[in-house]
Simulated scan of single mutants.
Amino acid sequence: MSSIHKIDLFDFRLENAAVKRWIPLYYQYFGQPVGTAPVVLVNHALTGNSQVTGENGWWKSLIGSGAVIDTDYYTVIAFNIPGNGYDGNPDNLILNYTDFTTKDIAAIFWEGLESLGIQKLFAVIGGSLGGGIAWEMAFLKPLQIENLIPIATDWKATDWLIANVLVQDKILNNSENPIHDARLHAMLLYRTPLSLNKKFNREQNDPNKEYKVEGWLLHHGEKLKNRFQLASYKLMNHLLKTIGEASHCGSFLQFGKETTAHIHLVAVDSDYFFTVDQNRETYEILKRVHTNVYYHEIQSIHGHDAFLIEFEQLNTLLQKIFITAKQKIQ
């Protein structure tokens, strides 16, 4: 496992004009030393962290020695969203979570990269919330990312997403068992009726006659409750609704005209969270003004979580981007 490192950021001004005197930014890096190879930034999703590869890596099927994002050829960096609790220090949790936006997190990540001497990225990739932050990073510096790869996300939060964030926030602030109960609701957004029906087929667990789908949901609630902090969940959930909050269609089109990035949109055909029609619309808008934009679609019954399940399809989609660059290095 790569060690967790820390960058101290001082006097950071948020979008709402509040100034944070100190923000600790924790990160891990994998593969080649910084400054010796192309840099791939991996942004984690709502309950994720910087452990993207290795034995417990949540994207180890994509990242590692000999993998499609090959740590023998790339420097892979993953920041922890400040306040996600992965450093284990309760003093670093963020209680005033509504102060922060995804644009703030994107600016924090750029400051972290610059403190490491990194001005340009070969790629920034992330799923869900991590992909939303990738969009925000591109909006801030449209000339400094070679490959933008947002997966199971979009450049803006929709009304549907904002509505579900509100429901999650109400559960988190009013339930007697907040993380557990919020997770039960969230899992139904991350999966699909077809996925659950095929997995459980109305079967029950003996002897208590509990339906297997109920046991599965309760298990996920307990699992997250035991490893995640309430303040962290409130912050990450809130950040989802702020994706693209500072942008509008006109500014998005202007970004498309200005950016030099190759933009690879990766949607999931059954995604209930960031719907496929929104991704297709984004592609249609961008291709009017930007030459190097590509649309990819994962076929899956599993919904939003397919970006954490359908590794074979993701590997196939990403090979052309990363293996071509690796061949140039060789």
Score class of each variant (00 low, 15 high):
17 A>G: 02
26 Y>I: 00
30 F>M: 08
32 Q>V: 03
41 L>K: 08
44 H>W: 10
45 A>I: 10
49 N>E: 07
56 N>A: 10
57 G>N: 06
63 I>G: 03
76 V>Q: 02
76 V>M: 09
81 I>H: 01
81 I>W: 00
83 G>P: 00
92 N>E: 06
96 N>I: 06
100 F>Q: 03
106 A>E: 00
114 E>G: 11
124 V>S: 07
128 S>N: 01
130 G>Y: 03
135 W>S: 03
137 M>S: 11
138 A>Y: 09
139 F>M: 06
142 P>Q: 07
142 P>E: 06
145 I>F: 04
146 E>I: 00
151 I>R: 01
157 A>F: 04
160 W>C: 08
163 A>K: 05
169 D>L: 11
171 I>H: 07
175 S>N: 05
180 H>Y: 15
185 H>I: 13
186 A>E: 00
189 L>R: 09
189 L>D: 05
196 L>P: 00
197 N>P: 02
200 F>Q: 07
212 K>Q: 13
221 G>Q: 05
225 K>L: 07
225 K>M: 02
233 Y>Q: 13
233 Y>P: 02
237 N>L: 14
241 K>C: 04
245 E>S: 15
246 A>W: 11
246 A>R: 12
247 S>N: 08
251 S>I: 14
253 L>M: 14
258 E>A: 10
262 H>Q: 15
267 A>M: 12
269 D>E: 15
279 N>S: 13
289 V>P: 08
290 H>D: 11
298 I>W: 03
300 S>L: 10
300 S>G: 06
303 G>T: 02
304 H>I: 04
306 A>F: 06
311 F>N: 14
318 L>H: 12
323 I>F: 09
324 T>R: 05
326 K>W: 06
328 K>I: 12
